[in-house]
């Protein structure tokens, strides 16, 4: 049963669409990433879910009840959502404990029960020993965990996170990602996680919505997006690989190695872009002739950039380096036919 439903959701700022007719059905307890380049409308979409922006067109529904549409606007404080802000938004005049306890105070929970819940939440993020500190005396990662605890304490139905790792260094990110996973397991809440970093989205989310200029490009599991991207744009945005224009293939289908060779021969006239991932290419003694453009050492393998005689470029992994200018042969085992960009 779909739990959070976005139906044709749109937002325009002074006539300019920031979010453009987005429809999503999000299941209870799903970990969803909103992924897209900077400025594509992710934050705007999240703020509409939270209730900080009004809805221009379309509607948002949660568990059957309407949260917002053109006429209705439930204020944020009545939506039973939690949010982790990019700047954490911890109140500087309250201690860690008071920050975490504030949502409970708003619910008029009795003091004793409140203390227990605060302790539990702080334990979950391993901050019990810092309960009486002021936010300014915490490190970036600790602040992030306080913000999480503040979210966790009321057990909200939906947790919204806006690029929560953007302000942290690379080392802290890995450990915070683990914290988010644990948080999700523990609460079972529906999580909506905004990021522009595809590897973050792939490693955390169970479903990803890829956005581009306010529109939804694709909605699927990380595996779907990687293996079967819908459009050329998504293919370029997610993962590595090259794109070949091939004739005689249908968008949205897999292309085998014979079809690739046949497609290359008929590549004049109407063609379809076909994504070829580097792990689907093998270096062989004979096959398609290519010229080596560059060869970079990546630890596990060498990453070669090669050029086909028709001009297209592909990426290949190989166990030893080649010299730029060398000639070589490759075998393409699998490709994925894409819809061309509008």
């Amino acid at each position: 049963m779909a739990n959070l439903i976005l139906d044709n959701l749109s937002k325009t700022f002074a006539g300019q669409p920031a979010v453009d007719r987005i429809s999503l059905h999000i299941e209870q307890g799903e970990f969803v990433a909103l992924l897209g380049p900077s400025g594509c409308g992710k934050t705007t979409l999240l703020r509409m879910l939270a209730g900080f922006e009004s809805v221009s067109e379309g509607s948002i529904r949660l568990q059957g009840g309407i949260l917002a549409d053109r006429d209705v606007h439930l204020p944020p404080e009545q939506r039973r959502m939690g949010m982790v802000f990019q700047s954490y938004a911890l109140w500087p005049h309250m201690t860690v404990q008071q920050n975490v306890g504030y949502p409970l105070k708003m619910k008029k929970m009795p003091e004793s029960e409140r203390q227990a819940r605060i302790r539990e939440a702080l334990e979950a993020v391993q901050l019990t020993h810092l309960a009486d500190r002021a936010p300014k005396d915490l490190s970036g990662g600790q602040r992030q965990r306080v913000a999480l605890a503040r979210c966790l304490v009321t057990e909200p139905d939906v947790v919204l996170l806006d690029e929560p790792l953007a302000n942290l260094d690379r080392h802290l990110r890995a450990s915070m990602e683990e914290t988010f996973r644990a948080f999700h397991r523990r609460t079972g809440a529906t999580m909506i996680y905004v990021t522009h970093d595809q590897s973050e989205a792939m490693s955390l989310a169970s479903k990803i919505a890829v956005m581009n200029s306010g529109r939804l490009e694709q909605w699927g599991t990380p595996q779907d997006l990687y293996a079967c991207p819908r459009t050329e744009w998504v293919a370029r945005f997610i993962g590595q690989g090259g794109i070949l224009p091939l004739g005689g293939v249908t968008p949205g289908t897999e292309v085998g190695s014979e079809a690739v060779i046949k497609g290359m021969e008929t590549s004049f006239g109407r063609t379809t872009p076909v994504l070829v991932r580097p792990e689907d290419i093998r270096m062989t003694e004979q096959g398609i002739g290519v010229e080596v453009l560059s060869s970079i050492y990546r630890g596990a393998h060498y990453e070669l950039k090669v050029k086909l005689s028709a001009g297209a470029e592909l990426m290949v992994f190989h166990h030893r380096p080649l010299v730029p200018g060398d000639r070589a042969h490759i075998l393409i085992e699998r490709g994925w036919a894409l819809e061309p960009d509008a």
């Binding site: 209730g51 204020p75 944020p76 911890l90 109140w91 504030y102 503040r150 009321t154």
Partner: peptide, 23 residues
């Protein structure tokens, strides 16, 4: 005063009046 401080209070259940008082 960062707007996010106020928004954080709203989403945690504070109405407009409480936001003035508490933040």
């Amino acid at each position: 005063l960062p707007a996010e401080m106020i928004e954080a209070a709203r989403i945690n259940g504070a109405g407009q009046g409480r936001v003035w008082l508490d933040v």
